[in-house]
Design a protein around this nucleic acid. Sequence first.
DNA 1: CTATAACTCTCAA
DNA 2: CTAACGTTGAGAGTTATAG
Length: 423
Amino acid sequence: MTIALIDGNNFYVSCERVFNPRLEGRPVVVLSNNDGCVVARSAEVKALGIKIGTPWFQLRDLARQHGIVAQSSNYALYADMSNRLMAVLGQFSPDQELYSIDECFLGLAGFGHRDLVNYGQAMRRRVRQWLGLPVCVGIAATKTLAKLANHCAKKNLAGADGVCDFGRIDAAELSRLFSAIAVGEIWGVGSRLSRQLAERGIASVEALRQADARILRREFSVVLERTLAELNGISCVTLDEAAPNRQQIISSRSFGSYVHALEPLQEAVASYIAIAAEKLRSRGLLAGMVQVTIRTNPHQADSPQYQRGLTIPLSQASDDTLRLTRAALWGLKRIYRPGFAYQKAGVALLNLSVAGTPQLDLFAQARDNTRLMQTMDRINGIWGRGTLRSAAEGVQQEWRMRRERISPGYTTCWAGLPVARAG
DNA sequence: CTATAACTCTCAA
DNA sequence: CTAACGTTGAGAGTTATAG
């Protein structure tokens, strides 16, 4: 089996640059929701040593000093660019697994072996020409190795020019290459495992590859044992083209500023339910349980802390925003305590089942507002989310998150387009 | 006791 | 100007609970 992993370079930053070429060559970061932390960095920012996840307010001086441009994240834009990216890459293989917003695997079985580097370069050229986005390509025998090859392509290791095919590198050179890569770069090896492995003298990819499977199994987990097999070219993680149905749908956000009273919390929870329920319906699912959570700011250690959640089972699975909202607000009332500065609320839809095969409740009373929901989704699909919404979501919504540096919805909203004035 | 639900921890992007 | 630290999803392993 041969698998390619294609990954966007600095994806969010690159999306911003497509529509704002003045950002080209300048240090650019994209911030998380609420303009909180750095979630994407241009090469110039990485060169300054700024780490992913750094709170933006800690960077103010450095940013001024180096002229760093910060953008609020614009997920509508990135999702739209992602769809286009996946469509272009899908032209290169009948077997495609969408893995994340900027990554996909392509199955390259039966593509021959000599031309794969060229084939990868062809992908890069087409994506660059059609979308303006830079990507890198990793090619290898397993998903884990393809991810690692992609890392090499990004870092220009082993003479890669944006494409790295482990199939073209001989065993001795591969060993040398792997000895120079930290074990934490491996897919599935996070910070904790890296530390524990290092304590046992396993610090590089090569060291892990040479490790004993039984010992890894005993001292760590099945997962790491699988990773080891994958590193040695034995495929354990299959290419999944059909995305499985969701097990849960979550919508949670921090507030733009602290919230104390119950009413704004109710508005936020109702709004988050509306978002989650819309996603639920778009996937043709029903929720059997609704979970609601609220919490204060855990970073503010000296102010009173409170965190609670409650899961509410529904008598009958539903995709009706109004019914789900009632359940969530019922739960919120039970967990809410006055006297705290709430920083975040969230909802989750759980126990999901496929619509059309409902578990009927003999004693069911209320009926879902199916037609109303369809109408609402259609209107909001045309005019934007929240155009038609339940009164529970509120009007002013002062708790809404900060997005002070948002770019226009270039591909998703007419108002976002720069207009050339006549005369 | 077992089976499962509920919860915690880890990882990923 | 202030003050300010993300979101969503999954799987494995552990603990609590029901029968």
